[in-house]
Computed example of a mutant assay.
Amino acid sequence: MVTPDTFVEYFNSEKFKEIYDTAFEPFKQNTEESRFVESLQIFHREAGDLHQKYHNKLTMNFNRYFYVNDDETHSLTAAFTDDNEIIGIELYLNEKYDTDDVWTKNEYALPLEEAVVSAGGTDVFHNYHYRTENQRYAYDLTNMVEFYHHNGDPGDLNAYFVFGNDVLAPLDGVVVDVKRDVKDNQIGIVNQDEPSGNYVIIEHENGEYSLLAHLKKDSVKVDVGDSVVTGEIVGQVGNSGATTLPHLHFQVMSDKELNKDSIRIRFKDFESLKQGDRVE
């Protein structure tokens, strides 16, 4: 039987049809068996055998496993239900960047009083931003209770634990840009026209700029030119912009323009953070 622990045995033996047979029915409906098998055959030919490296669980009944080859040039992420049905597989050609060793000159505080890191780190398993240069070291911050993002109707924004939480200035600085009037999305709707949604950008010493994005409509409490201090409330977590669930997008950039490079964040109280970490 294909389970997270035996997945590599089946993969390395090229038993791809057996892996497909383990998949969740909606996955099969969207993925033809022949195309699935062919994709894994090509990937195995290029990558060679795999072994398990990471595992995490960020939501109820949903487990993610990260498998890599010996040289870590290729990787595969598989998502399983608690009943060991495969609900998704992603194939990656791994890339590492010299900028992984370039940290912010400033040290930053977390911009929420408590949070769970839903995306963050220096690999594609922990951080979906990692492949995109202008967001590579960004963090998505949310909050959960026993793997649940909400308590109540999943379509109700106010049921989400993080929605409306205070967003704090991560360091002393001067506000250089704000947006406050973008409507919060209903769950499942994504606003690609204004991907950052409502946001605050703060200029700090050493030519660094923090971005706090996806804020709640009309919650921004600061204006351009305002001086802020670490821990000052600048807005509230929302669901505006290119987001499917309420969360805070936090990154540090080399310029106030939204398309500038992100910089790996040096935190005051943590050596590093990655997906799955809880901060209280």
Rank of each mutant, 00 (worst) to 15 (best):
M1P: 15
T3E: 12
E9G: 13
Y10G: 12
N12S: 07
S13T: 14
K15F: 13
K17H: 14
E18Y: 12
D21T: 14
E25V: 12
T31Q: 10
F36N: 02
V37I: 15
V37W: 01
L40T: 06
E46L: 15
G48C: 05
Q52A: 14
N56E: 11
N56V: 08
T59A: 13
R64E: 14
V68Y: 00
T73A: 07
H74Q: 09
S75M: 04
F80K: 02
D83H: 14
D83T: 15
N84M: 05
I86T: 01
Y97Q: 01
D100E: 11
D101N: 15
D101A: 15
D101K: 14
D101E: 15
Y108L: 02
A109I: 04
E114I: 02
A115Q: 03
G121R: 00
T122A: 05
T122M: 03
T122I: 08
T122V: 01
D123K: 00
N127Y: 01
T132P: 06
Y139S: 00
T142F: 08
N143W: 15
F147Q: 13
H150E: 14
G152Y: 10
P154I: 06
L157E: 12
N158V: 11
F163E: 13
F163D: 09
V167E: 05
L168F: 04
V178P: 03
V178K: 06
V182Y: 11
D184N: 10
D184H: 00
Q186F: 12
D193L: 04
N198T: 06
Y199K: 09
V200K: 04
I201V: 09
E203W: 02
E203H: 05
H204M: 03
H204T: 05
E205K: 13
N206D: 04
G207V: 06
A213F: 01
A213R: 00
L215K: 03
K217R: 14
D223Y: 12
V228I: 12
V229E: 14
G231C: 13
I233K: 15
G235W: 09
Q236T: 13
L245I: 10
L248Q: 09
L248R: 06
L248A: 13
V252M: 07
D255C: 11
D255K: 05
D255H: 13
K256C: 07
E257W: 09
E257S: 08
K260P: 09
S262Y: 02
R264F: 01
I265P: 01
I265Y: 01
R266H: 04
E271R: 06
L273T: 03
L273Y: 08
Q275R: 03
G276S: 02
E280K: 07
